[in-house]
Design a protein around this nucleic acid. Structure first.
Lengths: 111, 111
DNA sequence: AAGGAATATTCCTGTCAAGGAATATTTTTG
DNA sequence: CAAAAATATTCCTTGACAGGAATATTCCTT
């Protein structure tokens, strides 16, 4: 999960990903659309590629970059664990407070 | 989206979030469980708090940190746009190649 | 083979953020 | 009120990383 999050946690990289949501694009077009210099776009695409977020399809001299789906599915799966939070978060807070009170009286008295 | 991603894109912060998934926890316990020094934990919690990922509930001298649900829901919503990718990504690649071929012959001949 | 188009790589520099250590702050308890 | 517990803040140093500029690489065309 960390590699995915790290790759996305950079402003221009996130912009690139959101642009690629529209469909595959060659480097030059990404640079033009986002007002970025070509070398920086290549560098960002390298990072995204190493994180598995995009894949390349060479076509003549251009390289067409495309989003991969797996990392996003993985993110989605990861989020599962957090969907439950909504319901019982306040219950847990009180429950936790009880536990803490209990432990307080148990200092140095294991079991 | 960026603030959330940035906050999560740090190893120890991600660990803290995953720990808090179990329920609200005071700073000291987080530090103990994750083998981190208390000041660093406080700093990370500050970042998480400013990103809206956690909220604090003071209880005596301790401060109990709890995950907030909204950022995760927002992430979920954001992911929506990427769920569609699966289906037609290869269609789009070919479609895109056509477009590119077309544009190539149109250099300097708008519409 | 030469030139050009599209992209990648390298080197350099500046910035930012995380960790360490020490200290400040807040709240409880005796 | 003093001391202790729990947490927050400050200052410092160091490493990573993004952008700029220049250059290398790859592939097509003629």
């Amino acid at each position: 999960m960390l590699p995915t999050l790290s790759a996305l946690a950079e402003p221009n990289r996130l912009r690139i990903v959101e642009l690629l949501r529209e469909g595959p694009r060659p480097v030059g077009e990404i640079a033009a659309r986002l007002q970025l210099r070509q070398p920086q776009v290549s560098k960002h695409l390298r990072v995204l590629s190493e994180a598995g977020l995009v894949e390349v399809h060479p076509s003549a001299q251009q390289r067409i970059y495309q989003l991969r789906t797996e990392p996003f599915q993985a993110l989605d799966t990861w989020l599962e664990s957090y969907r439950r939070l909504k319901e019982d978060s306040y219950d847990r807070l009180e429950e936790q407070l009880q536990v803490l009170q209990a432990q307080e009286k148990n200092h140095g008295h294991p079991e």
